[in-house]
């Protein structure tokens, strides 16, 4: 009796499994990609799912690189239709795509994301430059006594770098190298900070990347995991520490943490939107044109995403902390979406 029930269950499962590959069609949009774009794309998807007759798209948070890898694997229902990215597609990725038959790709920029350096409200508000941040976090920095030579980072307190900075220990919680936020931070802050030293700027590409992008490992920079909420919590517990994370987390927690001013500009919505705040990056998604007429609802999803009520200045994405593009840029990309203009 028990045995029979078991056998029956396994037989059922077996048939279920063997019949699975037969169901070829897919009636929902499959989206992969960046975890930075994830909180915005999901809002659009949910809105779209509720207000249309189509199913809500499935959005996987795979990271930008992982997203491109899946996206470029081929054309067909088993491959994603759209990939989100917190950086532009690389030429090597375009090649992979083409090799696998993914030729017509529509690139859509959706807005900007600021990266903020923040501390708890109890701490002192900071005014930093990118050079100072570089000096505080790089593994090797120019010797203060002999400014043409690199030495292991000697700075312990912020005031060692610039006497106007507070006399507190350098302690920064930031994302690990696997994170897109870390890539953007390195590119926008560390590279720029390193470039402010002539002799580093003159180095060959490889050497420059090593000097500018290697973060110190003596405990001043703490890899705090991919979870930005965790960094926010740790900052509250430790007012002396600084944290690096996306603007939307500052936006949601502005009662307990404050963003440091970088290059004279505070990380506010307006400053990022105007491009005054230097540490910000564009966000994108990429659409497989070959899927547009095969998978139902892609056009409508694109329409929802590029509508003013979504990505406009007063749109719901702005409410979620995404920095909208200027009006002209929005118009340009809305047009590209409408005509499915390929790259």
């Amino acid at each position: 009796m028990k045995m029979k029930a078991l056998l029956l269950a396994s037989a059922l499962t077996a048939t279920m499994i063997s019949s699975a590959p037969a169901m070829a069609a897919r009636d929902y949009i499959s989206i992969v990609g960046s975890s930075t774009v994830y909180p915005f794309a999901t809002v659009v998807a949910e809105q779209y799912g509720k207000s249309t007759s189509f199913k809500t798209p499935k959005i996987e948070s795979t990271g930008s690189g992982g997203g491109f890898k899946l996206f470029c694997s081929g054309v067909g229902v088993e491959f994603p239709d759209i990939t989100n990215a917190s950086r532009a597609i690389k030429s090597s990725e375009v090649e992979t795509c083409a090799k696998n038959g993914v030729k017509d790709i529509v690139e859509v920029k959706i807005g900007y994301d600021g990266i903020v350096i923040a501390n708890a409200k109890q701490g002192e508000p900071l005014k930093l430059t990118r050079q100072e941040i570089y000096l505080a976090l790089a593994k090797e920095v120019p010797d203060p006594k002999n400014p043409d030579k690199l030495i292991a980072n000697p700075y312990i307190n912020w005031s060692d770098i610039n006497s106007s900075l507070p006399n507190t220990k350098i302690e920064v919680l930031g994302p690990p190298p696997t994170s897109g936020t870390r890539d953007a931070f390195v590119e926008l802050v560390m590279d720029e900070g390193a470039k402010s030293f002539e002799f580093i700027k003159k180095m060959d590409k490889k050497e420059f990347a090593r000097v500018a992008q290697t973060v110190r490992e003596d405990g001043a920079y703490v890899e705090a995991g991919e979870n930005d909420n965790l960094i926010v919590q740790k900052l509250q517990a430790n007012p002396a520490a600084l944290g690096i994370f996306g603007f939307s987390f500052l936006d949601q927690n502005s009662d307990v943490i404050q963003g440091s001013i970088v290059e004279e500009q505070a990380p506010t919505f307006e400053n990022i939107a105007d491009g005054k705040y230097s540490v910000s990056r564009p966000l994108f998604f990429y659409v497989k044109k070959a899927h547009v007429d095969v998978i139902p609802g892609i056009k409508e999803y694109l329409g929802e995403f590029s509508s003013e009520k979504a990505w406009g200045e007063e749109g719901y994405l702005a409410d979620k902390g995404m920095i909208p593009m200027p009006e002209a840029e929005r118009a340009q990309y809305a047009e590209a979406v409408k005509n499915l203009k390929t790259m």
Partner: peptide, 16 residues
């Protein structure tokens, strides 16, 4: 791919 944003309640084992 099960770490994903899925709003609709799955109705069978082949729904996301």
């Amino acid at each position: 791919g099960m770490i994903a944003f899925i709003v609709d309640i799955p109705g069978s084992v082949t729904d996301p």
